[in-house]
Every structure is written in structure tokens, then in C-alpha cells.
Amino acid sequence: KVILLEDVKGLGKKGDVVEVKDGYARNFLIPQGLAVEATKGNLKEL
């Protein structure tokens, strides 16, 4: 699961917690600054 930092077409809006494949999160969303891993600490910051 990841928390979206920006609106991502076809996935969700900023602040949404979405389930995506590990590779998509690690190789695209997180490096592009579009999402962060949905850890307990990150979820509390919402």
C-alpha cells in the first residue's frame, strides 16, 4: 500500500491510500515523488 502525494490518473487523488504492485510503487511512484509507503508513521501524518 502507498499514500499518494499527488493526484495520479487512474489510481486516485492526493492523500488516498491505495494498493499497488510492489514493483510499480518502488520503480515508478516513489522515485517520481508521487507516493510514499503506507507505514504506520506515514498514516499518522495524514
Rank of each mutant, 00 (worst) to 15 (best):
D16P: 00
N27D: 13
V36Y: 07
G41P: 08
K1G: 04
K40N: 14
D16S: 12
G33N: 10
E19N: 09
V18I: 11
Y24C: 03
V8L: 09
A38F: 08
G10R: 06
G33V: 03
A35W: 01
L34C: 03
R26P: 06
P31S: 15
V18N: 01
P31W: 14
L29Y: 02
G12R: 00
D22P: 12
Y24Q: 05
K14M: 07
L29R: 00
V8T: 03
D7M: 07
L5F: 03
E19W: 15
I3V: 11
G15F: 12
E45Y: 05
D22W: 10
G15A: 04
E6T: 15
I3D: 01
K14G: 04
A35F: 02
V8I: 12
I30F: 13
R26S: 15
A35Q: 01
I3F: 08
A25E: 04
T39W: 06
G41L: 11
E19F: 13
K14P: 04
L5Y: 03
G15Q: 03
V18R: 06
K9D: 10
L11G: 00
L29C: 02
L11D: 00
D7Q: 07
G12N: 00
V20H: 01
I3G: 00
K40E: 15
G12S: 01
L5S: 04
D7F: 12
N42Y: 05
D16Q: 13
V2D: 00
K9R: 12
F28G: 03
G41T: 15
L5H: 03
A35H: 01
Y24T: 07
V18Q: 02
F28M: 05
G15S: 05
V17T: 09
I30K: 03
E6V: 14
K1T: 10
F28I: 11
E45G: 07
K14V: 08
V20I: 06
G12E: 00
Y24K: 02
Y24E: 08
L43V: 05
K9Q: 11
K44E: 15
P31G: 14
L4Q: 00
F28A: 04
D22R: 10
K44S: 14
L29G: 01
R26K: 15
E19L: 14
E6Y: 12
V20P: 03
G12M: 00
L11F: 07
V36S: 06
E6S: 15
L11H: 03
E19S: 09
V2I: 10
L29K: 00
L29W: 02
K21H: 14
G33Q: 11
L11S: 03
V8R: 04
K14Q: 08
L43G: 07
V18H: 03
E45N: 07
F28L: 06
K13Y: 12
K44H: 14
G10P: 05
L34S: 03
I30Y: 15
L29D: 01
K40V: 15
E37P: 07
E37H: 07
A25G: 09
K1D: 06
K9H: 13
L5T: 08
E6F: 13
E19Q: 08
V2H: 05
G23F: 14
G15Y: 11
N42Q: 09
E37Y: 07
A25M: 14
E45H: 07
E37A: 06
G10C: 06
G10V: 02
T39V: 03
I30A: 02
E6C: 11
K9W: 13
K9C: 06
D16W: 15
P31E: 15
E45V: 05
E45D: 12
G41C: 13
G10I: 04
G33A: 06
V18P: 01
K1P: 09
P31L: 14
V2Q: 01
E37G: 04
V36T: 07
N27S: 08
L43W: 04
G41H: 14
V20S: 02
L29H: 01
K14A: 09
D7Y: 12
N42M: 03
E45L: 07
L29P: 00
V8Q: 04
G10E: 09
G15D: 06
K40W: 15
G10Y: 09
G15I: 00
E19G: 05
P31A: 13
L11I: 11
L46N: 10
E6W: 11
I3P: 00
L4N: 00
G10M: 09
T39Q: 08
V36F: 05
D16C: 11
I3A: 04
L29E: 01
E6A: 13
L46D: 13
L46Y: 15
G15L: 05
E6M: 14
E6K: 13
K44L: 14
D22G: 07
L43H: 07
I30L: 10
L34V: 09
L46G: 07
A38H: 10
V18C: 08
V8H: 04
E37M: 07
K21R: 14
L11E: 01
A38Y: 10
V18A: 04
K40R: 05
N27P: 02
V2W: 14
A38S: 09
V2N: 01
K13L: 10
A25W: 09
E37K: 08
L29S: 01
R26W: 13
L4V: 00
G41I: 06
G33P: 01
G10A: 07
K13F: 10
A38I: 04
P31H: 15
L4S: 00
V17N: 06
Q32A: 11
D7G: 05
G15P: 00
A35L: 01
E37V: 10
K1C: 09
F28R: 04
G10D: 09
K13G: 08
K1L: 13
L46A: 11
D16L: 05
K44R: 05
E45F: 04
A38C: 11
G23R: 12
N42A: 08
L46W: 08
P31M: 15
E6H: 14
L29N: 01
G10K: 05
E6Q: 11
K1R: 15
V20N: 02
Q32F: 10
E6D: 09
A35T: 01
R26E: 14
Q32M: 10
L43Q: 04
Y24M: 06
K1V: 12
V17F: 05
Q32C: 14
D22K: 08
K44F: 11
D22Y: 12
D22H: 11
G33R: 09
V36P: 00
K40Q: 15
G33K: 09
Y24R: 03
A38R: 03
N42I: 04
G12F: 01
V36Q: 09
F28W: 10
P31N: 14
L46T: 11
V20F: 03
Q32K: 10
D22V: 10
A35K: 00
N27Y: 13
G12H: 00
D22S: 13
L46C: 04
A25V: 08
